[in-house]
């Protein structure tokens, strides 16, 4: 199979952060395959080979549940994110799948206007085309720091 074009990867990355930052979280799970892996972890944990994450989902159902819980069950102050991405560095491409590393920075904006850099890090991604759409088979959000301020409600 042909390689996945960088244009498609860029479009997926851009759509993903737009979805979260625009608070369209119900659409967020659709960026992933049904069998997927989404983990928010830290560089220290990743390097140590620790598999545990701050968020860990290995099915799309778990991603849907994460959003349902945020909408229906969990209590947190109103907040939003602004993701700023660096350029994806494609590390592997061919056979209908690809892998890349993309740096991110997330500013968390609280309801009272307080804005802070909430997380920086790199997305370690694996992509696959399914039904003509490019999706994440795996997305590890590896934060540079193991320190989380207050709580992590919205996904990275």
């Amino acid at each position: 199979m042909a390689a996945i074009t960088l244009e498609r990867i860029l479009a997926l990355q851009a759509a993903y952060i737009r979805c979260i930052d625009n608070n369209e979280l119900e659409a967020w799970p659709d960026f992933f395959l049904n069998q997927c892996l989404y983990v928010v972890t830290s560089a220290e944990n990743h390097k140590a080979g620790f598999e545990g994450g701050i968020i860990y989902a290995d099915t799309k159902g778990m991603l849907i549940d994460r959003i349902a819980a945020l909408r229906e069950a969990n209590i947190y102050e109103k907040q939003s994110y602004r993701h700023i991405l660096g350029l994806p560095h494609v590390t592997n491409n061919g056979g209908g799948s690809a892998e890349s590393e993309t740096p991110f920075m997330v500013v968390r904006v609280m309801h009272d206007g307080q804005s802070d850099i909430f997380a920086t890090g790199v997305y370690l991604d694996s992509y696959r085309v399914e039904g003509g759409d490019l999706k994440f088979a795996k997305r590890l959000a590896v934060c540079d720091s193991s320190r989380i301020d207050t709580l992590m409600a919205l996904p990275l």
Binding site: S42, N45, F50, E51, G53, R147, I148, D149, T150
Partner: peptide
Amino acid sequence: VTGRFTQM
């Protein structure tokens, strides 16, 4: 150990 995080 499977993970270590600090929550401020």
